[in-house]
Design a binder for these strands. Structure first.
Length: 234
DNA sequence: CGGCTTTGACCGGCGC
DNA sequence: GCGCCGGTCAAAGCCG
């Protein structure tokens, strides 16, 4: 009987219980402003049905190779992300970071970033959903001809994982030491030029089908190159 | 002073 | 039915 009354103040200080009561009153005004994102989602706010929305949500996985010294979990893709959580999963001793798109509050896109268990120099970013707003860098950046980057401009490699959709691996490290890396077993598989050609074609076709994701990847590369430009001044 | 990151707790789903 | 685990929230702290 001791601890039982003690829970009252605990729940009082600890938010979500009381908060949930309040939240359902503003249920009607959710994105009453824009609404261009999911105009067809009028059936989903009934909240009762086991929504398959997250199943339909576009899930893209991007493997970004970074410097091993880079301990951060930040994947520069041109969008503005706000970190809202971090967890250590059983799957991987490295913590997984959770990001939301902070550029547009109504943007449903979420991003999970975790280092690969096998090769900790590889960041695996999982994007869920699609951006319902234009690319932030396009808004503020001048529409110069240099904006249209091609994936071929950087050393990149793609691997189509059969588990859950395409996995794009971007080697964003400096091109000089890319050969003697041999860090992951995937690098050995990438050795043959035919395989790389195959991967490039697969990646190209995959990206062609998904223009928004192509933009995101291009932005990621451009952002990284831009960073290198600032660092190395070339 | 405002915004972002960190961090611990809570919640819901799933497996046993 | 219980326990585990992934995902999310929100207060506190930190930085620009």
């Amino acid at each position: 009987m001791t601890k039982n009354p003690g829970t009252s103040e605990l729940s009082a200080s600890r938010k979500r219980k009381a908060e949930s009561i309040i939240t359902n009153i503003n249920n009607d005004n959710n994105n009453g402003t824009t609404g261009q994102s999911e105009s067809s989602s009028s059936d989903e706010d009934s909240c009762k049905k086991p929504r398959e929305e997250h199943i339909k949500a576009k899930i893209s996985r991007v493997c970004v190779r970074t410097e091993t010294s880079d301990t951060g979990l930040v994947v520069k893709d041109g969008y503005q992300w706000r970190k809202y959580g971090q967890k250590v999963t059983r799957d991987n001793p490295c913590p997984r970071a959770y990001f939301k798109c902070s550029f547009a509050p109504s943007c449903p896109v979420k991003k999970k970033v975790q280092r690969s268990a096998e090769d900790q120099s590889v960041l695996v970013a999982t994007y869920e959903g699609e951006h319902n707003h234009p690319h932030p860098s396009k808004l503020e950046a001048t529409p110069g001809p240099n904006r249209c980057l091609t994936l071929a401009s950087v050393p990149c490699s793609a691997s189509l994982s059969s588990s859950s959709g395409p996995t794009i691996t971007l080697d964003l490290t400096k091109p000089k030491s890319s050969n003697d890396a041999k860090t992951s077993s995937t690098d050995r598989r990438m050795g043959s030029p035919e395989f790389q050609q195959f991967l490039v074609e697969q990646m190209a076709s995959s990206l062609t089908k998904d223009p928004s994701f192509k933009a995101a990847v291009a932005a990621a590369i451009s952002g990284n190159i831009f960073k290198q430009n600032q660092t190395e001044k070339w």
